[in-house]
Structure formats: structure tokens, C-alpha cells
Nucleic acid binder design. Structure first.
Lengths: 244, 244
DNA sequence: AGCATATTCAAGTAATATATTAAATAGTTG
DNA sequence: CAACTATTTAATATATTACTTGAATATGCT
């Protein structure tokens, strides 16, 4: 009964599913959720051959999940719709809740992270409004420029060590990166702790922040030199807020 | 850098994606979003051989999207997590917005539906609170029992014609079914219109209602005989509300 | 024009997925 | 226990997918 119609509708849904049926393609989508990228840039970041990356992108384009724009020699790919990130996010959520293998993997590699008391998005928003915290975007500059948490300062993880002296020691820092399983923010927090600064990471990454509808900004700007010392108690970090 | 970890994480995500890479498996998931079902029941509804249905269910179980429970001769399958319906919903949303083929298909088969002015979930909730409308669940009784919109009356589409006389002519009706592309509610509205009753369909279906957090109920109950005639103007349907 | 670079395309192969058929298992009924 | 039903498993043919390699295309630069 209506079999033909149903088959055709579900065939369309499965086009999306098929595009998500490969680990490298999901990784491509999550990278594109940070910023546009060229084929070569995606291939080298993920460790794919150029031809292979190009083929995956073709698959994704045929499923209408990405779009491309030609710019001279380069072809820039981008997500076709904010809903594409939702796809990744829901897959991740289900994997977290349901896949024992996934949980084990996370436990092995991020088990110690709970000691670092990641900050929730809502809490960060409140503290940012109170100008209570310095938000550090530790992703590559290109991704910061494509979109970042409003008020954040670009401090790519590779430059952080060299630029530490720009960061007053009496402020509190929250670092964020690409997502909950990206280690950039962990490394940043580690570096900041080593230099006796108070720092935590945002639990999520920028795409989750944007998807939640929290304030974002675009473009370069906000050099670290703008960070002022704490106006509250010069020389000593303010009391840590209680978090449960 | 951290390639090995990333590969393993994305491999897990892709397990979910692979499970969604087949039209019949997506259809199985959407059916299970209505109610638990046995293998045989799924196979016959979808038009699959038993062995084939069993294999698809095995795939879904290995991706931890469904669980099974043995009951005598039968094995009942159910969604493993509410997030699994979210997967279907997000895929559908992306298909609707991005796939031209899908849009064309919908236009061809449901193009005339906009004439019927489907009711939005929010509007239905408001009107239900005001006891302004009779909500008819036109899915099979089994699905109604597994969960339905709070206050709805079970009126399976196959019985509707025979039970029409139980429905006062001076009330307004909203019929709903499995989802936006299920035709049961369309047929119900058509039958009700033919018998000069005022009726519209809910745009979405029960799983969307539940996922939105609107009030639901379980179990049999609520026979049609409980429907009272309108207390406002006996004999004539009340004025239609303006909808834009 | 000639060369370099970025990307796509085409062909081939290995691996994986799908559906069919037949056989095996497990539980129920008489 | 035999007959029956629901489900799973196994075996197989076919189709699809993933990655590699090498060639083709397209653009920009000198």
C-alpha cells in the first residue's frame, strides 16, 4: 500500500545516510563545521590522498551536504546547511549514549579530563557577560576568522607558548576548540596551568556553541594585547566559583 | 597528529552512519518510533522477506540503535534510545531542505495537501487545552497503545468509515498519524470532509510530538463514545479560527 | 607559450553490503 | 515427541564502496 511512494521517499533519506556511512566523510563534515576549506587542506588535515578526498567531497556534494565555490586554482568546500552539523551532533550524541566501544575509547583517552572541570556553555555565557573570564579560541586562525564565540581572542594552540606573556596572570581563562573530542583546548589548559594561570576548557566546541544559538562573531580582530589585568584584585586570581 | 585516536573515534561515528545507509533500515527505525514490533510485523509492513528483515535488524542492533526482547516465539524490537528518532528527524529535515529530488517527490504526491491547512503542533496543544477540538489518532490500535497524544482518541484509519456515526457532526477534528509523510491522516480528513465534518490534519506525527516534549499518554482507553457534542452551539460547528 | 599547482576523472582491485534461498534453532502446541 | 511458528544463520550471487594509481583538466604565473 503506497509502497512505491514510500520506497522513493526512504531512498532519498538513505542518500543522506549513505553519505554519513564513512568515517572520513564525517570527519570532513566536522572540519567544515569550523570553516570552509580547500580540498588539499582537508586531505592533509585528515591524512587522505588528494584524489580520495576529492572523491569523498563529490559523494558529500551529491548528497547535498556540502557546496563548493571556485576561487582561482582552489575549490573551497563548505557545509550546505547548518542542519548538516546537526547530523554530526546527533550521531555523536547517540554514539556517546549507546556505543560501549565509544565510551571505552573516550574513557581511555579523556578519562582524566573530568579532573579539569570543563565549563558548560551556559556557564561560560553567564561569566562572559559579567566580563569575568578571558575566552581563548585555540583553533587555527583561519577557523577563528570564519566564526568564533563573541568576545573570544584568537590564540592558536601552536602560538600559545610563545604568546603566554601577553596573558595577565591574574585573569581566569576558558579555552575552547573544535569540539568535545578535540585536544587543542586540553593542551591549552595544560600550558596555562604550567605557567600558573587559572584555566579550564569549554566542554563543547565552537560548532556546538553556534548551534545552541549563543552569540558568535566573525572576522579577525581582538588581539591578545587588549586583555586587561583584573580590576578586582590586582595580582591574585579571584575566587573560583563553586561548580557542582 | 593524534591520527590514530581520531580514526578510532570517527570509526565509531561511522558505525551509526552505516546503519542509516539503507532505506529499509530507516523505514524500520521510523516504524519502531511508533511502537515495538516483531520481526514478522516489520517485514510484512515494509515488504521485506523475513530473513532480510532479520538481517537489517541485526545490523541496527550492532550499531546499538535498536534492542530486542524475547517473548515466547516472538522477538520484539524497539528503539534503543529516543535519540534514534532524532537521527531520523534530522536526516528528514536535511533532505527536505537540501534534496531537490525529495522536494519534487513531495510536491508530486502531497502538493495538494497545503489546501488542507495542516495544524501546527503548538496550535493543536493550545486548542486541546481549550477542549476546542477532538484529536483522532488514526494509526493502528497497537501504536496508539504504545503512546499517543494526551487526550487523543484511537480511531484507526481502517475502522474510521464504519465508526463515523460515533463522531458528532458539530465538533472540529484534528487527525494525526505516523509522521508528515504518512497518508493515514490525509485519508481520515478526506473521509471526515465527505461526511460534512470539519477536520484538518496535524502536520507532524506522533513521534515528532513526543520528541518536542508535548504531553503524551499510554495504554488503551478513550473510546469514541466519550466524545460529547459541542456545548457552544448545538448543531453547527463553531467558527473556524483564523490561521495564516 | 611553457610550467606549476589544485582538482577532478577514469580504471582497476579489494573489501563490503544487499537480497535470495535454504537450512538451522528455539519455543509452543497438541 | 511431533508438528508448527518465529526467528536466526549460512551460503551465495550481485552490486556497491573505498582506495590507489595515473592521466586529464583548469587556472595562474613568468
Amino acid at each position: 500500500m503506497q509502497r512505491d511512494l514510500k520506497d522513493r521517499l526512504y531512498e532519498q533519506f538513505a542518500r543522506i545516510g549513505k553519505a554519513l556511512a564513512n568515517p572520513h566523510r564525517i570527519e570532513i563534515l566536522e572540519l567544515l563545521a569550523q570553516s570552509d576549506r580547500t580540498v588539499e587542506s582537508l586531505a592533509s588535515e585528515i591524512g587522505l590522498s588528494l584524489a580520495n578526498a576529492s572523491q569523498h567531497l563529490k559523494t558529500l556534494r551529491q548528497a547535498a551536504l556540502v557546496e563548493s565555490r571556485k576561487d582561482g586554482l582552489h575549490v573551497h568546500y563548505r557545509l550546505a546547511d547548518p542542519g548538516v552539523f546537526d547530523l554530526c551532533a546527533v550521531i555523536r550524541a547517540v554514539a556517546e549514549r549507546r556505543l560501549a566501544d565509544f565510551e571505552r575509547l573516550v574513557q581511555q583517552h579523556f578519562g582524566e579530563r573530568s579532573d579539569l572541570q570543563p565549563v558548560a556553555m551556559r556557564d561560560l555565557l553567564d561569566r562572559a557577560k559579567a566580563d569575568d573570564v578571558v575566552i581563548l579560541d585555540v583553533r587555527p586562525a583561519r577557523e577563528f576568522e570564519a566564526g568564533h564565540i563573541a568576545g573570544a581572542i584568537s590564540m592558536p594552540i601552536d602560538d600559545l607558548q610563545a604568546r603566554l606573556r601577553l596573558l595577565p596572570t591574574d585573569r581566569e581563562y576558558v579555552a575552547y576548540c573544535r569540539g568535545p573530542y578535540c585536544v587543542y583546548a586540553d593542551r591549552a589548559v595544560e600550558l596555562l596551568h604550567r605557567s600558573r594561570r587559572h584555566a579550564r576548557r569549554l566542554f563543547e566546541g565552537f560548532p556546538e556553541w553556534r548551534a545552541a544559538g549563543f552569540p558568535v562573531a566573525r572576522g579577525p580582530e581582538a588581539s591578545a594585547s587588549k586583555i586587561t589585568r583584573s580590576s578586582r584584585r590586582a595580582g591574585s586570581p579571584r575566587q573560583r566559583r563553586a561548580r557542582t
